[in-house]
C-alpha cells in the first residue's frame, strides 16, 4: 500500500499541498480529481521525489521514501507524465527500453531480457510494428502510448499517471482504461490524476478530490453525486445511468447565462439538482 501522511509542499514560499493524507491500496485504481491548481500533479511529483516536500511522510509498504535514493524509488514508482516531449530521434523501442534504467547496475547495459520486456510492453499498448518508428514522427496518441509503454517497462509496483488519456481519442482512451484495469488486476497500486470525471468513474475504485491543496473528499467511486462534483468544480453536474450494468456518467451542465458572469448576474450558480 502506498501511504501519504500529512504531506505538505510549498513552492516559492506558497503552500501548494497542505497536510494531505491518503492511502492507495494494491489492486485498486485510485483517481485524484480536482480543479486546475488543486495540487494533483504536485502530489504525484512529490511522491516521485521530483519536488521536495516540506513536511509529512510518503511510504510504500514498510519503505519510507525519505530513506531511499531516486533510483530505488524509481524501482517502486513509475509515472506517465501529462506532457510527453520527445527531443531526439530515438526509435520507439529505444525510448521504451529506457524504462529499464532503474533496474540496471552502475556499469550494466540493457540486456536481452530488457529488450524482450520493452517489446512486450509496446505490444501491450497496441503499438506492435512501431518498434523501429522514430518517436518524433508519432502522433499525439501514439506518443502517449509510447510513454505508457516506457512506464510499464519500469515494472514497478506503484504506477502514477498524470492525465494519461489527455491526448487520446475515445478508442485509445478506452484501451488505456483497460490497461489501467489490468495493472490493478496485477496487484499494483495505481494512482492517477485526471480531469476526465467519466474516465475516473469508468476505471477507478476510489476517488480522492483535492481542492486548494487539501483533500476535500475521499470516497468510493460508486458514491459519487452531482452535489460533490458541484462543490469541487463550482459548476452544476448531473449524474446519469449508462447501460444496464450500473455504470454512470457525469455531465457538467452549462449555465445558459454563461459561467463567467453567472455569479455577478444571479448571485450564485444555478443548481441543476
Amino acid at each position: 500500500m502506498l501511504s501519504v501522511k500529512n504531506l505538505s509542499v510549498a513552492l516559492s514560499g506558497s503552500a501548494i499541498l497542505k497536510d494531505v493524507s491518503l492511502d492507495a491500496g494494491s489492486g485498486r485504481v485510485t483517481a485524484l480529481l480536482g480543479p486546475n491548481g488543486s495540487g494533483k500533479s504536485t502530489l504525484l511529483k512529490a511522491i516521485l521525489g521530483v519536488i521536495k516536500k516540506t513536511g509529512g511522510k510518503i511510504a510504500f509498504k514498510d519503505t519510507d521514501f525519505a530513506s531511499i535514493d531516486l533510483k530505488a524509488r524509481a524501482r517502486i514508482c513509475s509515472c506517465v507524465h501529462q506532457n510527453v516531449l520527445f527531443s531526439s530521434p530515438y526509435t520507439v523501442l529505444e525510448y521504451v527500453l529506457m524504462g529499464r534504467y532503474p533496474h540496471l547496475g552502475s556499469f550494466d547495459y540493457y540486456g536481452l531480457s530488457d529488450y524482450r520486456m520493452a517489446r512486450e510492453m509496446i505490444k501491450r499498448v497496441g503499438l506492435a510494428g512501431f518498434e523501429e518508428r522514430i518517436v518524433t514522427t508519432l502522433s499525439g496518441g501514439e506518443a502517449a502510448r509510447t510513454a505508457i509503454a516506457q512506464a510499464l517497462t519500469q515494472d514497478s509496483p506503484v504506477m502514477l499517471l498524470d492525465e494519461p488519456t489527455a491526448a487520446l481519442d475515445p478508442r485509445h482512451s478506452m484501451i488505456v482504461s483497460e490497461i489501467i484495469g489490468e495493472l490493478a488486476a496485477e496487484k499494483r497500486v495505481v494512482l492517477m490524476a485526471v480531469h476526465d470525471v467519466n474516465m475516473a468513474l469508468d476505471c477507478s475504485d476510489r476517488l480522492i478530490f483535492l481542492k486548494n491543496g487539501a483533500v476535500y473528499k475521499d470516497m468510493d467511486s460508486r458514491d459519487i453525486t452531482g452535489g460533490i462534483l458541484r462543490d469541487v468544480y463550482d459548476i452544476p453536474w448531473e449524474i446519469l445511468p449508462v447501460g444496464n450494468d450500473g455504470r454512470r456518467a457525469a455531465i457538467p451542465v452549462r449555465n445558459l447565462i454563461g459561467l463567467k458572469y453567472a455569479g455577478e448576474k444571479t448571485g450564485g450558480l444555478i443548481d441543476a439538482h
Binding site: L48, G49, V50, D69, L70, K71, A72, R73, A74, R75, C77, S78, C79, H81, V84, L85, F86, S87, S88, Y90, E94, Y95, M98, G99, Y101, P102, V135, Q150, Q154
Partner: peptide
C-alpha cells in the same frame, strides 16, 4: 540517452 530523449530523468531514478 534518457536526458536527450526527453524522458523525465528524475522519474527514472537519475
Amino acid at each position: 540517452d534518457i536526458m536527450a530523449s526527453g524522458s523525465d530523468g528524475k522519474t527514472l531514478g537519475i
